[in-house]
Write a protein that binds this DNA or RNA. Structure first.
Length: 790
DNA sequence: GATTAGGGTTAG
């Protein structure tokens, strides 16, 4: 008998073993050693006895320490106690609110309700033969205890008016065929609702409970919102009015008349929030206890197989996994396929397949920037899942179940001509069917997993630097910058650099403390040598829009060029009827047999332009607003060469496309094409701000003019090629490993050019890293001692 | 008012 009622005596002493040592409640923590310890307090709340099957009970109670010496607020001296098994039943029968209680043989856990009830962050759990409790009955009529539900109206009315429907829940092991029951269980397998051949949607589940019996469950319901909202294995489910049935020799559960369902997150400690669409379901304190008991039980059962949820950064090719992500954009592909562009804020180590779609068929805005950072996953959703996926709105949060990571599948069904080579790039397929729970659903924004995801995604907008202001502040350094340092200059500390001031070139040894932008694709810039302005590389949506705009010009083009007009077959019924694609070639080049070296293209989409550019050396997209051929708005690339795109300066270009083209040009490359068209070519560059440190201080330095040699990457390659971008990332990861401490970062030999910038009449010193090669970063100990980590 | 499905990879 684990509950000992101490009939007389004012406090513990005679019957409580003397060797037991009491712990004040405020001092309890999950790491407390509870062996031989006791906790004492007055019962301020006693919950109902909840039956979980034969001899299986749970009861929650709260005790408050009255003589707490810790002088703490009352919430820290009140603690939840969860009683299990026979102890719960004994307690229910022999203890009342107001009694004094002393417990021993407990374990301390985190209280899942601490947020809600504002009580102690821990709870005490009592179960099994080791748990004992001593009770001193209250002298002030404890049996006429305070009504449990404080919000109840006058008690006489309650007993008359309210028919309390008491639900009893049957353990799964006790199910008999042919009856209607209520059950509480943990979900071990589930399929999102799918259309049946009949009139309903069907959810297929497998559930289990403390009886360890696994039971299949089939839910038919014509309304999707009335299906169980199950997000992951381990979720807790409450089913009311389900029918038992014998199928293949085993009991299974089936919806019956008046069926209802509520689900809960299965994680121990997460808030017990019922997920339901029903406005009138019953849910009380007892349900909380049952949910918490199931969670605690399931946590020790390894019911859920290896974590199926995998971030993009951990995806292995050829595997199936569940993805939790945000939807960026959708695009219908054909009647049995829809494209979802998604991200989860993590970078996939494998190059991701880029699926090109017409910007005008795309809903939402995937930026090329994100694609460039290898953050955007393209998910092709097939067959039965299309109906669900087409209702998703960009911005919503999704979980995609049993997604297939497929390397090298680089073509859309309708897209059979040569795209840029993406062999080995990872594409994601949600195949048709529902095997292995294949499917997808929107997750509510307040679910725990989505809150985590949001925190990750938010870091992507927080620290975006304003590039133009950064560059204006730093400006282009004056001639002092041209002085070189071959590391023969005397090495100085950062403090000395600051005190000596510009103009000067310094040789320093330093570590990287931080850098901006964190998203390296944002460091990619376009620079005009003539007007010295710098601009961002536009994303595909912007560029695609300019192409769509130019397509509206369907007028003729009379300029003496050799012209080939190709009518395009209609791929979609909605497409405007007579779209044509016009190839124009210089008659002059024709005469020299070099016509194919420079092709002007009118009426093409961005995607078509890219495809054609992969087959011809120089493609110039054009339009002819007044019948005269001219390049597109210079926000768009004026030239496509293979996978590379070249831009012109809007300010400094003076466009000319005459009949005589490129007199004397031998080789057509971006420079000669720009010259021939009167375009002032923009140069790709990498712009970053590095915060350096040594033992003497820290200093911000710009990396711009010599960024390419710093990274051993051409910015132009980085704009077109994921591998080149990866090399930049690898360098930064080497200099500043994610999560690393100062001591772990290598020392760099750097040259700093110090110069003066005037800003609002104020002169200030600025620094730029020059002539520095990061391949030889120096791991040795530095003469200026280890800098502090602050 | 009965029926649907009854877990166990597409093959794009």
């Amino acid at each position: 008998m684990p509950v000992l009622v101490v009939k007389d005596g004012p406090g513990p002493g005679t019957q409580v073993p003397a060797q037991l040592q009491r712990i004040p409640i405020p001092l309890l923590s999950p790491t407390s050693d509870c062996t031989g310890k006791t906790v004492k307090g007055r019962v301020v709340h006693k919950g109902p006895l909840v039956s979980m099957g034969e001899d299986n009970y749970v009861l929650k109670t709260v005790i408050q320490e009255e003589d707490s010496q810790q002088n703490m607020s009352p919430e820290h001296s009140s603690i939840n106690i969860i009683l299990f098994g026979a102890l719960a039943k004994d307690y229910s029968e022999s203890v009342s609110q107001g009694d004094m209680l002393l417990v021993t043989g407990f374990t301390v856990g985190n209280s899942p309700t601490a947020q809600k009830d504002k009580l102690h962050a821990c709870n005490l759990q009592l179960a099994g033969d080791d748990a004992w409790m001593y009770v001193w009955p209250s002298t002030v009529s404890p049996r006429a205890s305070v009504p449990r539900k404080r919000t109840s109206p006058a008690s006489t009315e309650v007993t008359k008016a309210v028919k309390v429907v008491k639900y009893t829940y049957v353990p799964l092991s006790d199910l008999k065929p042919g009856v209607v029951v209520n059950v509480y269980a943990v979900v071990t397998f589930f399929k999102q609702p799918f259309r049946t051949k009949g009139t309903d949607y069907c959810s297929t589940l497998k559930i289990t409970d403390q009886s360890n019996k696994k039971v299949g469950c089939t839910i038919f319901c014509d309304k999707l919102e009335e299906h169980p909202k199950i997000f992951k294995m381990g979720d807790v489910i409450r089913l009311h009015r389900v029918k038992t049935q014998l199928f293949n020799g085993a009991i299974s559960l089936l919806t019956s008349h008046g069926f209802s369902v509520v689900t809960f997150d299965g994680m121990v400690g997460s808030p017990v929030v019922p997920r339901t669409s029903s406005g009138s379901f019953k849910f009380g304190e007892e349900d909380c206890q049952v949910v918490e008991a199931l969670r605690t039980w399931a946590a020790n059962q390894s019911l859920v197989p290896a974590e199926p949820c995998v971030p993009l950064s951990a995806v292995q090719p050829k595997t199936y996994f569940d993805l939790t992500c945000q939807l960026l954009a959708t695009a219908p592909v054909d009647s049995s396929c829809t494209l979802l562009k998604v991200w989860d804020g993590s970078k996939c180590p494998h190059p991701l397949l880029d699926v090109f779609v017409e910007p005008n068929t795309l809903e939402g805005s995937p930026t090329l920037s994100k694609d460039m950072a290898n953050l955007t996953a393209n998910v092709l959703v097939y067959d039965n899942h299309v109906e669900v996926a087409r209702q998703f709105k960009p911005g919503s949060y999704l979980r995609i179940y049993n997604l297939h990571a497929v390397p090298g599948a680089s073509r859309l069904p309708s897209n059979d001509s040569g795209q840029s080579d993406q062999t080995g790039h990872l594409g994601f397929h949600l195949h048709g069917g529902t095997s292995y729970g294949r499917g997808l659903r929107v997750l509510p924004e307040d679910s725990p997993d989505i809150l985590d995801l949001k925190r990750i995604l938010e870091t992507f907008s927080e620290s975006d630097i304003n590039d133009s202001s950064m560059f204006e502040v730093w400006s282009t350094p004056p001639e002092s910058f041209e002085r070189t340092c071959d590391h023969t200059v005397e090495q100085v500390s950062l403090a000395e650099v600051k005190s000596r001031g510009p103009p000067q070139v310094f040789h320093v040894q330093a570590q990287l403390k931080s850098y901006q932008p964190q998203r390296l694709y944002q460091s990619l810039k376009l620079f005009c040598h003539k007007c010295k302005t710098i601009r961002d590389v536009p994303d595909d949506v912007t560029v695609g829009g300019l192409f769509s705009e130019a397509q509206k010009d369907i007028g003729p083009c009379n300029n003496g060029y050799w012209t080939l007009v190709l009518p395009l077959p209609r791929e979609l019924p909605s497409e405007s009827p007579s779209r044509t694609l016009t190839l124009l070639m210089s008659s002059q080049l024709m005469g020299k047999g070099k016509a194919k070296e420079l092709i002007f293209l009118k009426g093409a989409t961005l995607e078509e332009t890219c495809r054609i550019a992969s087959a011809y050396s120089n493609i110039v997209p054009v339009t002819s607003p007044q019948g005269t051929m001219t390049p597109l708005d210079l926000s768009a690339p004026f030239l496509f060469r293979g996978t590379k795109r070249y831009y012109g300066c809007k300010q400094c270009s003076q466009l000319k496309v005459g009949e005589s083209l490129g007199e004397g040009v031998e080789v057509w490359d971006e420079k000669s094409v720009a010259d021939a068209l009167g375009v002032q070519l923009l140069q790709y560059g990498l712009l970053m701000k590095l915060e350096l440190q040594d033992g003497t201080g820290s200093l911000e330095a710009l990396l711009w003019r010599d960024a390419e040699s710093f990274f051993h990457v051409s910015a132009e390659d980085a704009a077109a090629d994921q591998e080149a971008q990866d090399r930049v990332q690898e360098t930064m990861d080497r200099l500043c490993p994610p999560g690393s401490s100062t001591a772990e970062r290598p020392w760099m030999d750097l040259c700093l050019s110090a110069y003066t910038v005037e800003e609002n009449g104020q002169r200030r010193a600025c620094y730029q890293i020059c002539h520095t090669d990061t391949r030889g970063t120096n791991p040795h100990t530095h003469p200026y001692a280890a800098p502090s980590d602050t």
